[in-house]
Design a binder for these strands. Structure first.
Length: 491
DNA sequence: TGTGCCGGGGT
DNA sequence: ACCCCGGCACA
């Protein structure tokens, strides 16, 4: 089944809407018809309820088809909120066409308007004729939607996302997309969104794509959940992609905390070809890279059909943020109990292309587990009772509050568990002292006073002597009887 | 001052 | 290794 057929037969498309708005399902047909009238088909896909009615994050995707039904291979980012933006050409044309979007012909216009209470409906105001980028801009978040110029050219990822959603819909009963409030992005939303995306994409085995679907290098980049504040965090979210990719972190974009916006950003282009991490600073360079190295074409040929656009991703690198993130990953960081700020403050939304890409390749089971768990490890050997060690397991979701609260001490990743068991008394106390994140100094040095400097603080809990008393000394633990550190009532 | 426990010695 | 204790630090 080709793409057009896919669209015609199974697509249920809605437009991401606002709070309380009724479903816009079924508008796809209108879009498609309208699109066909213009020689193209536009399908706006709302991820919501693609699978299992999960309260997934919201993203908008567009699938642009030529009049002959072929999926356009140019990157596409902008979609008209009204569903009539047909901008199949490259950036300049699309940008110029942004202002030419026709007013909405949404059949649900009236119902969308009716859900507006008090506030002026974005449908009535600027949304009409306004474009939303697939990045996830939402009419509820702001009626004024800035379209970053460098992103206006967009990516193939949204097309792929839309296609993935369409494929998913083709193989399952397409649910009616309903509109949900999106002023907040709950944790479950993002996780569900991620899972939905992973599922929808991985489940697509029909190979309906105009490109080689068997190639895993096909980028699949849904837009992450829609943030409340889209202007904030946009740059950071992209800048953090690199860092997060470096440390192989998982999806971390459900934090709706507004981020401070920085200006020192640089647009980079990352090759998405499998096992290729090439990052270049120019789009032409990355296109040439993809053409020559991965597509086996002449790098200088001008007759490119734009296929290489599928294989690289544009990312905005914030130099400051990146340097901060890398500093947290420096070799000296293992003694720092707090997780790197990159992990603690997941971006409100992010391109997700790289993360999803990594997720598809790795399919980490942890990504499907609970947000985070703690393992309290206690040493069980006599005399060597230590403070419990909290080890955070890396989950798919990491909220900053979790890291700050629960992470008392995290051993360096290179330290095997056996080494966690301290050998002698003086050493076993050091982790406790170093557990304070405010102590940046290196590990204990020989300059400590030999007798008193490293003495373990007295435990607060009851010991065998207090519990059983001197008269029941036989009930004491061996260590207490020997006047050693109590091993029964450790602190 | 009582308690926890380190360091050391004895067996 | 097991047992014991002097002595120090801490509450």
């Amino acid at each position: 089944m080709n793409s057009e057929g896919l669209l015609n037969t199974s697509l249920a498309v809605g437009v991401s809407g606002c709070r309380g708005a009724p479903t816009l399902a079924g508008s796809c047909g209108r879009h498609m018809e309208d699109g066909k009238a213009n020689g193209k088909i536009v399908a706006t896909v709302d991820s919501h309820k693609i699978h299992n009615n999960l309260p997934t994050g919201r993203f908008l995707c567009t699938v642009l088809l030529d009049s002959d039904g072929a999926v356009r291979k140019q990157r596409n980012e902008a979609i008209a909120f009204t569903g009539t933006a047909l901008l199949p050409d490259r950036r300049e044309k699309r940008l110029s066409a942004f202002n030419k979007v026709q007013p909405c012909e949404m059949e649900d216009r009236s119902s969308a308007d009716s859900r507006s209470t008090g506030d002026q409906s974005p449908w009535d105001t600027e949304v009409k004729g306004q474009l939303l980028t697939g990045r996830g801009l939402h009419p509820c978040a702001s009626s004024h939607i800035p379209v970053p110029s460098h992103r206006a050219a967009g990516h193939a990822d949204r097309e792929v996302m839309a296609a993935a959603a369409l494929t998913s819909l083709s193989s399952s009963s397409a649910p009616a997309f309903t509109l949900h409030p999106q002023n907040t992005v709950p944790e479950a939303t993002s996780r569900g969104w991620k899972e939905t995306l992973s599922t929808s994409y991985s489940s697509s085995t029909s190979g309906n794509w105009s490109w080689d679907a068997s190639d895993q290098s096909v980028p699949c980049t849904p837009s992450p959940p829609l943030p409340t504040n889209t202007s904030k965090g946009f740059l950071l979210s992209q800048a953090e992609d690199i860092t997060e990719e470096t440390e192989n972190t998982h999806f971390l974009f459900e934090d709706p905390i507004p981020r401070k916006r920085r200006n020192s950003t640089k647009v980079m282009f990352k090759c998405l070809w499998k096992n290729c991490d090439t990052v270049l600073s120019s789009s032409s360079g990355i296109q040439r890279h993809v053409r020559t190295l991965h597509l086996g074409r002449n790098g200088d040929s001008d007759d490119s059909d734009g296929e290489e656009d599928f294989y690289y991703s544009e990312m905005e690198v914030n130099v400051d943020t990146l340097s901060e993130g890398l500093s947290c990953l420096s070799p000296t960081s293992p003694t720092t109990p707090t997780a790197p700020p990159i992990s603690q403050t997941p971006p409100p939304f992010r391109p997700a292309l790289i993360s999803l890409w990594a997720d598809l390749r790795c399919a980490s089971p942890l990504s499907q587990s609970a947000p985070s768990t703690l393992c309290h490890i206690r040493t069980d050997h006599a005399y060597q009772a230590t403070a419990p060690v909290s080890i955070r397991t890396v989950g798919s979701v990491c909220r900053p509050s979790d890291a700050e609260v629960s992470l008392s001490w995290q051993p360096p990743p290179t330290v095997p568990p056996a080494q966690i068991r301290m050998v002698n008394a003086s050493e076993k106390r050091q982790p406790i002292q170093n557990s304070c994140s405010t102590k940046p100094h290196p590990p204990a040095t020989p300059t400590l006073k030999p007798s008193t400097g490293n003495r373990k603080p007295r435990g607060e809990g009851k010991k065998c002597r207090k519990v059983y008393g001197m008269e029941k000394r036989e009930l004491w633990c061996t260590a207490c009887r020997w006047k050693k550190a109590c091993q029964r009532f450790t602190d």
